[in-house]
Nucleic acid binder design. Structure first.
Lengths: 152, 152
DNA sequence: TTGCATTCGGTACCCAGGTACAGGCTTACC
DNA sequence: GGTAAGCCTGTACCTGGGTACCGAATGCAA
């Protein structure tokens, strides 16, 4: 039992492979494990981590959520919510709140998008000497949905 | 000319007022000024900042953009783009890129929203003992649009 | 004019989210 | 069996985005 047997049970991706495929640093994997975003993976006999292949997908999800402005704690919650689909009443309520927040984000993104689209259209009569009168303050529509009270 | 005259030219909001109305810290105003997100405001005779009132709106915009996952540098760029609507070819291209990025964000948010909505619906036959077979990996659809190359 | 609240500039510190490095074991291949 | 590449734990460090604190100067009202 010391060595030699390939130990079929514990195949999987090693940290380096996962990191490369997901485009993250190896240290980040351990960091996420500490933070509870990644479950502790299996180990080889020698103690090396062996990840299930879908870990790569999960990492992509986490990175996408980060780009959307969610903190790691929030992402952990979202993943948890998405994982067990028969949530407690509390979790359910938080999901509802998150949905409202997401709707706000989408609306704000749409507003920014709109302004940028106008920029690209550049409906001005000249690149250097624009006389169009309807060039008001940009993005005025966003950020106005929430007065001051934050998520806390 | 030493004092007494209200000096009509230099009315405006003082840092404390702006900070309170926008719900940010006073130090944050100076920080944003250093970072180039806020233009240097006028000053009183004694050197105190006097902000134009729409600074509050601008701060709300900045905060909204932050919640959407944009860095301060990106926000500075977005503001710049939105401000001068007759952009250079380069700025224009960057606006186009940003729009694509925003579309991706919106799509990802919609995916998360969808999963959360399913959670809220909880289309399971029991809260503790669910037999529904279609509870696959959550969020599988998001994060898959970009393979690895990032904005850089 | 006195006095308290604000603001000034400057520097130091804080937190989240990583990233790097050191010294020692594993794995893989010849 | 030797050895290079890869991974282990642990700790230290870095960047972005702020915050806090200091002593001095201003603003404004009584």
């Amino acid at each position: 039992m010391t060595a030699g047997r390939p130990e079929l049970l514990m195949d999987g991706l090693r940290t380096g492979e996962v990191a490369e495929r997901a485009g993250v640093n190896i240290q980040t994997l351990r960091y996420y494990e500490r933070r509870g975003l990644l479950a502790e993976p299996g180990r080889s006999n020698g103690g090396h981590r062996l990840y299930p292949p879908d870990t790569v997908v999960l990492l992509n999800v986490i990175k996408a959520a980060q780009r959307l402005g969610f903190s790691l704690d929030e992402i952990a919650e979202l993943l948890d919510a998405g994982r067990r689909r028969h949530p407690s009443a509390d979790l359910r309520q938080r999901a509802i709140d998150k949905i409202a927040e997401i709707d706000r984000k989408i609306a704000d993104l749409a507003a920014i998008r709109g302004t940028l689209a106008e920029v690209v259209d550049a409906r001005c009569d000249s690149l250097t000497n624009c006389t169009c009168a309807d060039c008001p303050l940009p993005y005025l529509t966003i950020g106005t949905t929430r007065s001051s009270g934050e998520t806390e």
